[in-house]
Structure formats: structure tokens, C-alpha cells
Amino acid sequence: MLELTPRALRLLDFYADGQDSRHFRLRIDAPQPGDLAVIPGQFFMLGVPGFGEAPFTYVSPPDEGGEFSALIRSSGRLTARLFELESGASLGYRGPFGKGWPLLLGARRVLVVAGGCGLAPLAGWIEEALHHAAPLQLRVLYGARSAPAQVLGRERERWRQVLPLIETLEHGGPEALRGSPLAQLDRLFAEEQPQVVLCCGPEAFMLAIAKTCVRRGVAADNVWLSVERRMHCAVGLCGHCYIADSYACVDGPTYRYDHYLQLLAHGNTGHAGGELGVGPC
């Protein structure tokens, strides 16, 4: 039977990590074997008693002691309350849920593209890839509104040492890197054609990146997206995260682009437009 009751989770500590965002360290009180099997890109439901539950992705997966970290941006009642809490606060945890990023890629050349807080679901994957036995040629393209809006500062600092990290800003920064990450694809593809693209950010942004990459020769079944939806039950019952006949909490939030396009074609949102920003989050 599906688990609808949270387990106790402790807020250990946090630090500011980007505008309106905090990097939280959390501990599951009684970790179970399943907690160690988290795949990057999966998510958990964070319960703030009195303020409901909401989905967040792991930046680092739970360790043997049940400790893990998550990047959370303040938007809405639940996060507003979370940001008022002190270390030691009692929270609720359910997870892991959903499908993560593909793990063992036959491919060698991978391009990761993230917009805003969309970097968070990719962080765990990047870390794993860096420790992979057969090293990948991994490049990370990260776009944000402005320097203060950039998240995962400590992680990016580390990555910069070991892989090409291209950081664009809509406002500020060097001229060459100003604007949308879309504008960097020409150069990146010219340098080296990626085989696989992983992308996370606002939906319209992801779709534009994916479309461009496919046009430039990446196979649609080698492009992966992670979408955001309102979620409550996380087990495919409550209905909120529908995308056509798929539920993002079970079948996603990570989708293969070609599958996702099929869903859009059969869903109710395929014709809806949207702006191409890297978004608030």
C-alpha cells in the first residue's frame, strides 16, 4: 500500500544560497534502506506541519545517517514558514518519489543546461557523474537572472575546478555571457556536439533548449527534462501533477523529450505559450 504518512525529519541547519534561496541540511529520523537508493532527479515531499507538504529535489542524497541537503527558494506559505524555523525544528518527510535522471549513459559527451533554481535537481547528477568510473566529457551551462540570483554557489565553485561551467546572466556579468543560455548553444555545439542533454528550468525555457538541441542533431530520445508541477500525494493519486495521461510525480518529474512532446500533443497545455526567461525558479 502507498505511504501517505510522513516520517519525522529534522532541520539540521541552513545557509543562504542565492536570492530568496537557502541550502538546507536535513536528517531523516529513522532512515530506511530505500532512503539510500535515491537517484538524482527524484524528489521528496517536505512537510511543514500546519502549512502542508510540497515537493523538493535532493541536492545531495541521504547518507547512512539519513542526512541530505536540498535547495529551497521561498515562494508561498509553506516555504515562508520554513524560512522562519530554527535548527532542530520537526518536519515531515516522504520519499523518494518519481523518476530521476538516466544514470549510466552509454554516452561520453553530456551537456547539462539549467536555468535558475533548475540547477538543484541536476546537482546530484553532476556530482555522481564526476565520480563515475568512466569519466564523461561533461559541460554545464547555467543561466540566471543576475549574480545574486545564482544558486548552489559552493557546488559551482567546486565544479569550476573540474569541468567547463558556462554561467550566463540576464543582467550583469561579462558581455559575452549576458542573456539567455540559449545564446551559448551555437558556441557549445560548435566546440563539441553533445550526445546527451539534460535540462531543467522553467518549462518554456526547457522546451526551447530541447528544441534547439534536437535541431542541432541531438536525438530527441537523448534529451531529458525535469518539469515542475503542483504535487500533493506524490504517489499518482491526487491528480494535480497531470500532464496528459501521465502524472509527473510517478512518471516524471524527469521526462525524455520525445515522450514529453507526445504528452503535450495529447494534453491540454500543448498550445499554451510562455515567455522564455530563466525564470524566478
Binding site: G76, T79, E203, E228, R229, R230, C241, I243, T269, A272
Partner: peptide
């Protein structure tokens, strides 16, 4: 029903 905390609403 689908409105996200950010205000984005796919439907």
C-alpha cells in the same frame, strides 16, 4: 488546481 507556488499555472 495546478497553480504552483511560483504563480506559474500550466492550465
Amino acid at each position: 488546481f495546478q497553480k504552483e507556488a511560483s504563480g506559474h499555472n500550466p492550465s
